[in-house]
Computed example of a mutant assay.
Amino acid sequence: MRSLSLLALCSFSCLSFAADVPGSQDLPIVPRMVDAQIVDYRPAVELERIYPLGSIRKISGQLRFDGQVSARGNATSVTYELPPEHSATQAFTAAREALQKQDAQLLFWCQARDCGESSLWANEVFGNAKLYGSDNEQAYLLLRLAAPHDNTLVALYSITRGNRKAYLHVEQFEAAAPLGDLLPTSATLLRELKSTGELDFPKLTDAPDDTWLRLISRGLNLDTTLRTSLSGPNAEAWRQALIGQGVRAARLETGSVEGSGLHIELLR
C-alpha cells in the first residue's frame, strides 16, 4: 500500500511538472497563480519592440494606435492558462498589484472594447493565437519598473476565449538603451485612481509641472463625478493649478497624507 501511495504521488508530481511547456519558467517579477499552467514560453531574444499606448485598430492593412513605446532590447514572455476557478480578471489584477508593490509605473491600461480588437492584440502585437478571444473579455497593461530597473517594461494581457478558457500573458522587455521620459495617458491615471483609490507621484515635489498638470487635469475631467484630496509639500498649489485647468473646486480638497511628492486620494 505504501509503495502504491508513493507511486501515485510521484505520478501526480510528474504530471504537474509536465503540464508546463518543456524548458519554461516563471518570470521572477510576477508570481504564478495557483494551478496555472505555462502553455507558451519564449526565452529572451533581441528584437525591435513596439508597445501600443492606445486602442488598436487596422486601417488599410496597417496597425494604428494613438501612442507607442518603441525600443530595441531583449523580450521574454510567458503565457499561462488559468484553472477554471480563477478568472482572467483575477489573474490580471494579481499581476498588476504585484508589480505596483514594486513601485512599477503604469503607462497604459485598457479593458474590454476600449483596447480595440482582441485578434489584433493576439496576432499582431504578441504573435500568439492563444490570446484571441472576446473583445469584451480582455485587458492590457504596460508598466515601467522602478529605478534602477527603469529600462525594463512589463506588458500584461489577459483574455477569456469563446470556450471559456482564460489566459494571462506576461512579457518582460529590457531595453538596450535608456528609455528616457515616459508618461502615462490621462485615461490610465483615471483608471488607476478608480481601481486603487490613489495616485502617487513621488517625483512631483516642487511647484506644479505643466506637463503633469495637463495629464492629471484631463484624467480627473474624464469623470466629473469624482472627488479627491491632494496631499504633499505643494498640495494647495496643485489644487489651485488644477482648478485653473478646469477641475471644479468642489471636487478637490487638501489632504494630510505624508509623502515626498504629490499624493491624490479618491474620496469615497
Rank of each mutant, 00 (worst) to 15 (best):
residue 156 L to I: 04
residue 158 S to F: 13
residue 60 S to I: 09
residue 209 D to Y: 15
residue 261 G to W: 05
residue 16 S to G: 05
residue 184 P to Y: 04
residue 87 S to T: 12
residue 263 H to T: 10
residue 206 D to N: 13
residue 155 A to N: 10
residue 143 L to W: 01
residue 111 Q to T: 10
residue 16 S to P: 10
residue 144 R to P: 07
residue 240 Q to I: 12
residue 60 S to W: 02
residue 51 Y to C: 00
residue 147 A to R: 05
residue 214 R to L: 14
residue 7 L to I: 11
residue 70 S to R: 12
residue 124 E to T: 03
residue 100 Q to N: 06
residue 237 A to D: 13
residue 143 L to N: 02
residue 141 L to Q: 13
residue 106 L to T: 07
residue 124 E to C: 11
residue 89 T to M: 08
residue 216 I to F: 03
residue 171 E to Q: 12
residue 174 E to Q: 11
residue 50 I to Y: 04
residue 188 T to A: 07
residue 61 G to C: 04
residue 115 C to L: 08
residue 164 R to Y: 00
residue 16 S to N: 13
residue 259 G to T: 08
residue 119 S to P: 04
residue 52 P to V: 02
residue 4 L to G: 07
residue 231 S to D: 15
residue 104 A to P: 06
residue 115 C to Y: 01
residue 26 D to M: 01
residue 184 P to Q: 08
residue 194 K to R: 12
residue 46 E to Q: 12
residue 240 Q to E: 09
residue 250 A to F: 14
residue 25 Q to M: 00
residue 208 P to F: 11
residue 23 G to P: 02
residue 192 E to N: 05
residue 81 E to H: 05
residue 265 E to F: 10
residue 69 V to E: 10
residue 196 T to H: 02
residue 168 L to G: 14
residue 146 A to K: 00
residue 94 A to R: 11
residue 99 L to E: 06
residue 179 L to Y: 03
residue 25 Q to F: 00
residue 38 I to D: 04
residue 102 Q to L: 01
residue 75 A to H: 00
residue 87 S to G: 08
residue 80 Y to C: 15
residue 11 S to W: 03
residue 148 P to L: 04
residue 68 Q to I: 08
residue 201 F to R: 08
residue 159 I to F: 02
residue 177 A to P: 07
residue 111 Q to N: 13
residue 55 S to H: 15
residue 187 A to W: 15
residue 84 P to L: 01
residue 195 S to G: 15
residue 4 L to M: 08
residue 134 S to M: 02
residue 258 E to D: 14
residue 3 S to A: 09
residue 228 T to N: 10
residue 143 L to S: 03
residue 155 A to F: 00
residue 151 N to V: 03
residue 106 L to K: 01
residue 234 N to A: 13
residue 54 G to P: 04
residue 261 G to L: 12
residue 225 T to L: 06
residue 17 F to L: 15
residue 74 N to K: 14
residue 153 L to T: 02
residue 211 T to I: 12
residue 238 W to M: 15
residue 45 V to P: 01
residue 110 C to S: 15
residue 263 H to D: 09
residue 216 I to R: 05
residue 176 A to N: 06
residue 245 Q to H: 14
residue 138 Q to R: 11
residue 119 S to K: 01
residue 120 L to A: 09
residue 148 P to M: 02
residue 244 G to S: 08
residue 229 S to L: 10
residue 191 R to Q: 09
residue 155 A to T: 07
residue 114 D to E: 11
residue 251 R to L: 13
residue 190 L to A: 12
residue 108 F to T: 01
residue 119 S to A: 06
residue 111 Q to S: 12
residue 93 T to L: 04
residue 264 I to P: 13
residue 28 P to R: 01
residue 104 A to R: 03
residue 21 V to L: 06
residue 81 E to G: 10
residue 90 Q to T: 10
residue 206 D to V: 10
residue 220 L to C: 10
residue 243 I to P: 13
residue 103 D to G: 00
residue 65 F to A: 04
residue 8 A to C: 09
residue 231 S to A: 14
residue 266 L to N: 09
residue 8 A to G: 05
residue 143 L to C: 03
residue 166 A to Q: 05
residue 259 G to Q: 10
residue 206 D to F: 09
residue 242 L to V: 07
residue 210 D to H: 08
residue 117 E to K: 03
residue 159 I to N: 05
residue 50 I to F: 02
residue 246 G to W: 06
residue 109 W to L: 04
residue 223 D to N: 08
residue 164 R to V: 00
residue 259 G to Y: 11
residue 116 G to L: 06
residue 168 L to P: 15
residue 22 P to L: 00
